[in-house]
Design a protein around this nucleic acid. Sequence first.
DNA 1: TTGAAAGCGGTACCAG
DNA 2: CTGGTACCGCTTTCAA
Lengths: 354, 354
Amino acid sequence: MADIKDVARQAGVSISTVSRVINGSKAVSDELKMRVESAINELGYRANSVAQGLKASKTNKIAIIITSVSRTFFTSVIEGANEVAERLGYSLLIAETHDKLDREIELIESFVSQWVDGIILASSAYAHDARTLQYIQRLESLEKKGRRIPVITLEYAMDSRYIDAVVIDYEKAAYDATSYLLKLGRRKIAHISLPKNHRIGRMRIAGFERAHEEFGVPYDPSHIIAGDYTTYSGYQVARNLIEEKHDIDAIFCANDQMAVGAIKACEELEVPVPEQIAIVGNDDIFAASIVSPSLTSISVPKYEMGAAAMRRMHEILQEDAAKHLRQIITLSTAFEERESTLKTAKHSLKYLEW
Amino acid sequence: MADIKDVARQAGVSISTVSRVINGSKAVSDELKMRVESAINELGYRANSVAQGLKASKTNKIAIIITSVSRTFFTSVIEGANEVAERLGYSLLIAETHDKLDREIELIESFVSQWVDGIILASSAYAHDARTLQYIQRLESLEKKGRRIPVITLEYAMDSRYIDAVVIDYEKAAYDATSYLLKLGRRKIAHISLPKNHRIGRMRIAGFERAHEEFGVPYDPSHIIAGDYTTYSGYQVARNLIEEKHDIDAIFCANDQMAVGAIKACEELEVPVPEQIAIVGNDDIFAASIVSPSLTSISVPKYEMGAAAMRRMHEILQEDAAKHLRQIITLSTAFEERESTLKTAKHSLKYLEW
DNA sequence: TTGAAAGCGGTACCAG
DNA sequence: CTGGTACCGCTTTCAA
């Protein structure tokens, strides 16, 4: 590839002049400008962004760290982030933690040494132990050349005064879903939750409880059972609930994967959905509209989550680092009613992309 | 962040010495080595890979260009590529074309100027026009500092003597699927194909035809109908076939999305699957095991496709560029028999990840 | 308006 | 075994 030297030689001008033309500085005579431009075209020159990066300490690369690209939830998040990134001129570096904190920490350090401009992070650091606290402190102090490398977390906000986040009002979403079931007349609602002590899981449980309280309906705490995200765990938990003859008429699941598992369990045990047991999922990933019966779900704006994170990242990168004010962007959810709670619900395949 | 100068100062040695210690050159006294190492630890120094990249003309970044991350097919491909990339020390840059050739071309140029070490490309350049030929020539000649930037295409091989590829034996896969249906006794098989003139689509049609010939079963060419990848198109085509009372007893679809659409059409029109119409998909994305009836599908090794591309990329980057020999890696498919062709087929949710 | 030169953070060569 | 120095490609300051 031609470099700026070649262009300068070809045009018979100095490197500085070429640089001026490229960066649109006014102070170049039309004569030279023309010569430089045609040299650029002839040689197909394009500035090397590695060198630019080194010079400017700015790479125009944003890293996005998620647990796994095959979690379709993140797929939409990435899509949103990428869309905005492209428009703003950033490239996206992607990496997966597979829910391993060690890996996550190593990735962070690697991206710092790559001088990414910012990091969008779906963290696996849920605990409250010393290691996690130390890690968060580290995240707060990432920098290149004295300038902070901003981190924006997805899904939940860290205990930090610096780290921005794009989150969902989980409590309200769970409240809405539960209220909906109660309004349908369901009185014995089970909840397949996230693993114990998961922050987001706890918020969902809080919403679940609040709805019951407000409706004056008691619930059985033993019907809040932890799953592990997977379809199979939803299947197992639902199957146990039914086989052990627990008296339930609805299941609210903390994600769609587990809800699909629950539907499969009902299908196998010939429990009619929604007649005997209504099922509500969470996230509204595309699979929700594909299963039979189609799955009623809390619709999380996944695409928007990625897009918002990237927009915010750009904002932060523009602003004066010294006066950074942490911002937590809370997105709200919608509710998609489908056949798993309402036999006659209709939905369209028309705009389904996957 | 500390740079190598800081480390040198802190350790009281020259920059060269620090560099030697880092890169494990033997010629350093234990004394100095120790001092440098503790300086590195104290300062938390890690080499800036932008500077390294500039110096070495090697960024350890591989770009992967796909149509869209939300196509779950690519999701698995990325996962495979990323897994291998991490092990080999590369970072993955990701970009989407949304099937626009203009965008694809621009992305290529952008990545060249970013000095990526290689590009893995799921191209949208299917046509045979002058523009495409010119584009392929450009792909063959990407370089940084005189060294070629290798391109490896996914899914199909370009008309090129240089560009490696990881592909599937589409003809055989379609042949297998069709033979399977014929063996089941189906005699009136429809095929919902990819858009007209799509190379891969044509190979599938060839396999479909060969199976019929070998079995001595005639087929109705009007039952090969192009879809457009989407669930909705599969739904529409299947619905038309049934409503217009075409006499068919099986549908082989060029992807799973369209197959799911076909299943939905049958469901709506109360045509029993597989009793009256058997349905076979293609790709075996996870949705195939979620729909009801679950979908029999040609299982494409998506993960392996990404992994193989990345391994090959690494090979090429190691070898002497002058003696590069183009290699086309053909992966073979498996066949997943499920309920859409065999009522009693069983499958497990246990290892399903999405 | 133009060119020369310094410097971004490393690596590697050469001299001592 | 160690340090000085040139250079990777670009931007920017300074001097002319």
